[in-house]
Amino acid sequence: MNPFTYSRATAVADAVRDKASHPDSEYLGGGTNLIDLMKENVARPTHLVGLNKLPLADIETLPDGGLRLGALATNADTAWHDEVKSRYPLLNQAILAGASPQLRNAATNGGNLMQRTRCYYFYDLATPCNKREPGSGCSAIGGYNRVCGILGTSESCIATHPSDMCVALAALAPTVRVSGPNGDRTIAFDDFHRLPGNQPEKDNTLEPGELITGLDLPAKGFEKNFSYLKLRDRSSYAFALVSVAAGLELEGNTITDARLALGGVAHKPWRDQEAENMLKGQPATEDTFRRVAAKVVADAKGHGSNDFKIELAKRAIVRALKQAAEGNQHAADVFLNSNP
């Protein structure tokens, strides 16, 4: 870890200005990812702009019936918020499937979107990695890539975005609110994270210096028929090998609206709108779900140790859609282990 200075911002404009005036600086939310990266020398900022005093920790209902999640609200406060539990239980489940209570108490919503990949090579300076050091090569290709992606990968990077929360968000399709040196703007969630292409060092479409201030969830929360299914190498406190966020609207047994997003498979939370369209108007049967699952992974490509994710993703999609259709999933009141 290199020496750095630290300042604490109390207003959004100050934070943005402070960051812009320090060339190698980073925003600091809960620090659960950035501090680790600094200890491993993967991130070497010389200045940190502390965000926790910004007035962005609130969660409030919007006039259009949606819900605004402050960027500095913690993952725990978000998951346990009454509105989230009752109207967006999918988000509640996804957040609680991630990390540990201690981490969720510290982690912020903004930081969750911005967390970096868990690719082993990204974390280990002894190995080349295009994301950490553009042009150095991708060690995961041909290496140990159990945690890497199968969809939307590129020749230069096959890393995944590790968040659970973001998979539910991809399904719920909020807009991301940002403030930057050039003012405020919003970004559709699906456009926020990006695929690696030949610039894997860029995880998302934020411009330099931009700060996430919040997320605006649309009114529709799929609170009746939803499922967040996470498959991992142990029952808790492990990143997803594959996760699925599914939301359905049903009339009788016919699907009228659908959302489907996957985690652990791509450089971004992988929402598949074509698959969603395939579901609409169809009966909520295993047969439908199988066809849709096959479509989602049709272009998937394994890289050796992660080949199994293709089959696993297929089966997980079917299971998650089935659970959503059955409609007996609930927001957690106490987080009981709901692993398959």
Binding site: Y120, R234, S235, Y237, N337
Partner: peptide, 15 residues
């Protein structure tokens, strides 16, 4: 390569 406790898995309570 998995030289940390996030990636070297030992059982947790839920297991």
């Amino acid at each position: 390569m998995n030289h940390n406790f996030a990636e070297y898995h030992v059982p947790v309570n839920a297991d």
